[in-house]
Write a protein that binds this DNA or RNA. Structure first.
Lengths: 231, 231
DNA sequence: CAGTGGTCTAGACCACGAA
DNA sequence: TCGTGGTCTAGACCACTGG
């Protein structure tokens, strides 16, 4: 491993582990030069690479800081439903249906989220666009990884928005399918049972710790995903 | 604009314009140093950045070359159906149903692909996993942008595979929806009309020129998209 | 004003791999 | 073998901006 890769790796490990929280000031280039006994260009190379990935933010005179996680770090912006709806010129609204403290992942969900072992927070709600229900969301949050969620005030926001702003997740996995609406979803979304729905499942981890599992089911005739790519 | 950005931009422009084709040898670092009258580190910075984006490939002793477009450049690997199927341990097969030379985008498709003005190649076919039809694909290829497609031998591969290997696309846009199967798709996929299907539409450009429009419709019960992310 | 990152220079040594 | 990229050094000047 090259020296600049080692510096990069060390800093990234500190951030991912939660040792350095968002906003924490990273040692200056000169301090890092001294720590690693190397030239400033080598440190600069490592820090520049980290800032390009969005993990840190560099400000002149002030120094380098651990970046606050922001929404546009991923290319496919699955979770930010509000922005998609608002971008279409419609009014976005989240209606929380229930928040439950559970001692463990409920039966029937264990197959979908075997990672979480301890107590979890279960949330349910509906995403609305204008006066139309857009999709239902069921979510589990691991309270061992995110204990502050137990007492969090989600305000009027969906739990996903709160999580994005409060937890520095390191890995997420999505699964996107077309499924028929069951009777419960059909009633919530005002569509016939069996009507096509887009289901997005999302598993999120911080390092090896499970953070959350979300299952969103959207009306097929009112919602689609878009993604722009450049090679 | 900084000097290394200018070097990077110049080289990228040559590649995107098609002036330097995949496999073309880029001037050595020393030659570029001379051209731009700068230090080798500056040239190296530009070339390293280009190779990290996958646009060029650097080989010791041999030099730097324009990279052949490869499948894993995007995070969400929508087009590579074959790899997904094979990864599940099933046998992938593409069956071409028709290839048509058309003078223009057919009526009924113009709304979906208004970009293409001239003659296009229209293809239809079915993706199979083992002995089960997985999804149907309808595609239009702009022959003004990709004239070699008119006489191309797609072999046993889907047109998308051929395109990925022959055209350096610069931008792609996806749309993912859940739609009900119509009678034609239902018959091709052996499912009931109205059954939920995952539809992926993909528009691809090279610079401002349209390359292709593809519409894939997959059985909802047999196909899903997965995507891993790291912030 | 002074410290910080942003950028660049000139030069060096090394490992690799095609000739 | 020897040209190429990969990496690093020591030093420099500049622009920005917070104290």
């Amino acid at each position: 491993m090259t020296l600049d890769a080692r510096i990069r790796h060390d800093i990234e490990a500190r951030i991912r582990s939660g040792d350095w929280r968002p906003g924490h000031r990273i040692p200056t280039e000169q301090e890092l030069c001294a720590n690693y006994s190397c030239a400033r260009a080598t440190v600069s190379k490592a820090l520049t690479a980290l800032s390009r990935t969005g993990l840190i933010e560099r400000r002149k005179k002030a120094g380098s800081f651990v970046a606050y996680p922001h929404l546009n770090t991923t290319i496919l912006e699955v979770p930010d439903i509000g922005a998609i709806v608002t971008g279409r010129g419609e009014a976005y609204r989240w209606v929380m249906a229930s928040v439950d403290h559970l001692d463990a992942v409920p039966a029937g969900w264990r197959d979908d989220w075997p990672d979480a072992a301890g107590p979890v927070l279960g949330t349910r709600g509906v995403h609305w666009a204008d006066a139309q229900p857009l999709g239902v969301e069921e979510r589990l949050i691991d309270l061992a990884t995110v204990p502050e969620a137990a007492t969090a005030d989600f305000g009027g926001d969906a739990p996903g928005s709160w999580l994005l702003g409060h937890v520095a997740w390191s890995q997420a996995c999505h699964r996107i399918r077309a499924v028929p609406a069951d009777t419960q979803v059909g009633r919530a979304l005002a569509i016939a049972p069996g009507a096509p729905c887009l289901r997005i499942e999302r598993w999120t981890w911080r390092a090896t710790n499970p953070v959350t599992y979300a299952r969103q089911t959207f009306r097929g005739d009112r919602y689609d995903l878009s993604a722009d790519f450049r090679p």
